[in-house]
């Protein structure tokens, strides 16, 4: 799907799996580079979705970042060790981690 042309310098975790990443790139880019296409399941029908626009407009790249839900992966910069999970359906009421 995509191939990196620049070296990675850190790792993040996606659903508990460790993925290589590059500090400062968007989380969405890091996931796509690792072959991840489905970022979330929609609250309406539960169908899988991935990013469409990568510019903050489509809200299809929503993920859970360090416990904070419905984050736009294309607008969150990668930092080493970031823990990311799929956004499943609507936000739930588990307290967002600070």
């Amino acid at each position: 799907m995509f191939r990196r042309t620049e070296p990675t310098d850190c790792t993040i975790t996606w659903e508990g799996r460790t993925l290589p990443a590059r500090t400062g790139e968007s989380l969405a880019a890091a996931l796509l580079a690792a072959g991840i296409t489905a970022f979330r399941e929609t609250p309406v029908s539960g169908s899988p979705r991935g990013p469409l626009c990568l510019m903050g407009a489509c809200f299809d790249c929503l993920v859970e970042v360090e416990g904070a839900q419905n984050m736009q992966a294309c607008l969150v910069p990668v930092s080493p060790g970031l823990r990311v999970a799929m956004q499943r359906g609507a936000r739930d009421f588990v307290e967002d981690a600070a």
Partner: peptide, 27 residues
């Protein structure tokens, strides 16, 4: 077009410019 793996051309260009991701495989 809602399937994961369908994106916009502009999105791919952003991935190229900001993260150096180039298309590979059946793109």
């Amino acid at each position: 077009w809602t399937l994961p793996g369908v994106m916009s051309v502009g999105a791919a260009q952003i991935a190229l410019k900001t993260a150096g991701l180039v298309p590979e495989g059946q793109v």
